[in-house]
Design a protein around this nucleic acid. Structure first.
Lengths: 214, 214, 214, 214
DNA sequence: TATGAATGAGTGTTCATTCAT
DNA sequence: TATGAATGAACACTCATTCAT
């Protein structure tokens, strides 16, 4: 047995690692399909073509599997945060923003349910919450810095603006991925980049560059 | 059994109306406290000082009570949507926006869980979803119109921008109400109004008016 | 729902009290039949002709039901302890002992599994253990007192002797009730009373009275 | 698969014998620690630093390992039974009893859980039960014989008295080993020997010799 | 001989909903 | 109109045992 007290505890051999990954992948899919609360362990193991027993060989419980997913997500998010370059008022700034948003969207596509759970649920355990806040802080931190560079003097509160910004990005990503809104990525990215560029970053007179293509 | 097939079906006498309201109010509180998924029928009836049997006298099921709440919320939201006046590029526009956001926040305080459920959950029934989309559409519709008036030519997609905007508003309201972010309403409203005014509405040269006070 | 956090928590109406009693009675029987570890909630509810849901209406969990039984048992045991009168060296002493043992046996017949769990299991929660020790202490306390009166000077350790005595009584009762030994109560009671009378109580010369009848 | 149908079936090479012993020793420890019902195969193999697969190479199942332990225990018990010499009414008799009890206690320390399972559990298989009864009979048989020699005429039932006696010894040993009672072996052995000597063996007038030292 | 991985029947518990009074 | 009691399908999790290497 040697049950999995914590998700990363045991050293695994190749086969074990494969099975664990199968479970994580299956969970990713099922979570995207049905959302966190409607996801059953049974759904996951069926999709991973394995058994309940096996599930608990790799994860202490449902929450633990979720935590493992959250850790992955947090890592990618933190990496992503570091990638946002300077966002100047000109078209290069807009483009920088846009390409960053594109990568954000890709990550969101994979980890949507995890991210949403971070942002939504009140019944979430401490460590998970911390994890989410950290990823959140990493990203807003990057945004704060970039905003600071742009001397966006109209943003008085250093915390709120990036939070609002991230909220907008996250929700919009959600709308697109959940198909509530029917539009392709191009339009989304361009519009979002423009709005953000104008609303949060660009300062001063010249506004022409922010005009959109598509 | 005389069970309540649908929430609004039966004509109620004064006492019945009172009991029904007690249940709705209790639900509002419990939902805010524990969130949708953690809310049990038992929590609601206990807080309403009534019984399970009584609950099902007024609502066909848990979802039905939620629907009743959603109807109330949708009505208020629709009314709210109609209240947004013209948002010009000047300081009056900013102020108009700000005061509207203030009323939105008040509504959000009461109906947060309902609104969030509209925006989040995939396991939600058709009619409820429709209701949410209608309220959503009403508001974005108003925003669209106001944006149109402002000739915000940089917003190419007529649907996306208001959606993103609403998303930002909703999430930010959530942050404030859930105390994830510690800031008072003043700061929130001012910053949000400014960002929106600049990012979505104002067009052209003059930017001075959007500068923030607090 | 109003789930039963603790066994005695809720005020029950007649019907509820009846059902609760049915469950306790059923549990008593099943426990006697299969022993603690082999007893399933399902066994209990089936015998009580009720459902799993109902079980958890009256008891927080399996252990809680067991605790309720233990409380009953402890009460009877404490009462029993108080009933043991003076045990003189003569035949009246022997008879006193015998009739007390008879009552002990009756109680044991009903609560055997509870008592055994007290004496056996290492995986038992604190409060239950305390309860068992208290009942145990009450009885050995009575025995200690009676032993003291008899000036059984050969018993050096005040704690050990009554413990050993109680152990013998308990185990012997177990043998009889579990039919490992085939003998009727008469023989058991007489022999046990005699052995105890001689071994623990009587002091001095005259031994004749302790001779057995059956 | 070459699985072990019965514990003693296969001829083992030195390494195999070593592994098997490691498992038995580990089981002894774990059983003492957690008791029979709480002991998991996993606990045993982990302590024996081996694997589940290996466990089933040497034992057909959990019960089979337990049976192996029981066999060992039964052998020692039978040997022990044969060692009890004549128990006269004088101080030599008392001493004989005492030293025998000392050896019993030592055995109990090692095989407590096995012995307890014999005496307790209703969910026990036939062969195991037989084994236990045999060991039990061996010991009570010795006691019977010694009692007979002492012409303890007050003990009418030939079976009951030794059973009660053994029960007392076993339980008391349990109390000491499980630390429910805090006392050292000296006191235990002396008191127990005295009580037994008086209650079961000695007959006639002279009682002085049974008086205790410690 | 050894092992880590896999299995799945079994069990306790929850909770929306219905029933009887 | 009100209520406490009853229900049972659903679900998470355990663990002895078997399999593949």
């Amino acid at each position: 047995m040697t049950d999995a007290r914590s998700s990363g505890a045991r050293e695994l051999r190749p086969q074990g690692r494969r099975t664990r990954k199968r479970l994580l992948d299956a969970a990713t899919v099922v979570l995207s399909d049905k959302g966190f609360h409607a996801t059953r362990v049974d759904d996951i193991v069926r999709r991973a073509r394995t058994s309940h027993g096996t599930f608990y060989l790799y994860f202490a419980n449902k929450e633990d599997l979720f935590r493992a997913l959250a850790v992955q997500c947090a890592e990618e998010m933190t990496a992503l945060a570091a990638e946002l370059g300077a966002v100047g008022p000109g078209p290069e700034g807009l483009e920088e923003l846009r390409s960053w948003l594109e990568r954000f969207l890709a990550t969101y596509r994979r980890y949507g349910p995890v991210i949403r759970r971070w942002m939504e649920d009140q019944a979430i355990d401490r460590s998970l919450r911390r994890l989410g806040r950290q990823a959140f802080a990493d990203i807003t931190g990057s945004l704060v810095q970039r905003l600071g560079e742009g001397r966006a003097a109209h943003l008085s509160n250093a915390e709120l603006a990036p939070a609002a910004l991230l909220a907008m990005i996250e929700r919009t990503a959600y709308f697109v991925t959940s198909r509530d809104l029917e539009l392709d990525d191009e339009v989304l990215l361009t519009t979002l980049a423009t709005v953000i560029h104008r609303g949060f970053f660009a300062d001063g007179a010249g506004r022409g560059p922010s005009r959109v293509r598509s």
